[in-house]
Amino acid sequence: MTSPILIGCAHGTRSEEGRAVVRGLLDEVREALPDVDVREAYVDVHGPELEKVIAEIPEGEGVTAVVVPLLLASGYHVHHDIANAVAPRPDIVSARALGPDAKLVKLLRQRLAEAGAAPESTVVLAPAGSSDERAQADTSKAAEMLRTAWGGPVRVGFASDIHPTVTDAVTKAREFGEEDGVTIASYLLAPGVFQERLSGAGADRVTAPLAPHPLLVSIVLDRYREACGV
Rank of each mutant, 00 (worst) to 15 (best):
L6I: 03
I7F: 02
G8D: 05
G8E: 08
A10V: 00
G12A: 09
R14W: 02
G18A: 14
R19S: 09
A20P: 01
V21R: 14
V22K: 02
V22Y: 10
G24H: 08
L26F: 13
D27M: 03
D27P: 01
E28N: 13
V29K: 07
V29L: 07
L33R: 12
P34C: 10
E40P: 02
G47E: 08
G47V: 06
E49G: 13
E51G: 11
K52Y: 04
K52C: 00
I54H: 05
P58N: 12
P58G: 11
E59N: 12
G62T: 10
G62W: 04
A65D: 07
A65R: 07
V67P: 00
V67G: 05
V67Y: 01
V68K: 10
L70Y: 04
L70T: 02
Y76S: 04
H77L: 08
H77V: 10
H77P: 04
H79P: 00
H80I: 13
D81V: 13
I82H: 05
V86W: 00
A87G: 04
P88C: 08
P90F: 05
P90L: 09
D91M: 03
I92G: 06
I92F: 06
V93L: 10
R96P: 00
A97T: 06
P100Y: 09
V105M: 09
L108T: 02
R109F: 00
R111N: 08
R111E: 05
R111F: 06
A113H: 03
A115R: 11
A117W: 03
A117R: 07
A117T: 12
A118C: 00
E120W: 08
S121N: 09
S121A: 15
S121E: 13
V124I: 15
V124D: 07
L125G: 10
L125F: 11
A126S: 15
S130V: 05
S131E: 01
D132L: 12
R134Q: 13
A135V: 05
A135E: 03
S140K: 14
S140Y: 00
S140I: 02
A142H: 05
A143H: 05
E144D: 15
M145R: 14
M145C: 06
T148H: 12
W150T: 11
G152Q: 06
V154F: 00
D161M: 12
I162G: 00
P164T: 09
T165P: 07
D168Q: 14
V170N: 03
T171I: 07
T171F: 09
K172T: 14
K172N: 03
E175V: 13
E178M: 10
E178G: 06
E179Q: 13
A185G: 15
A185N: 06
S186H: 06
S186Q: 05
S186D: 03
Y187G: 07
L188G: 11
A190C: 15
A190K: 11
F194Y: 15
Q195T: 11
Q195H: 14
R197T: 13
S199M: 12
A201E: 08
R205F: 00
V206H: 03
V206E: 11
P209A: 14
H213N: 15
L216Y: 09
L216T: 11
V217W: 03
V217G: 04
S218K: 15
L221T: 10
L221W: 01
L221G: 01
L221R: 14
R223V: 01
R223Y: 02
R225V: 01
R225F: 13
A227V: 06
C228H: 03
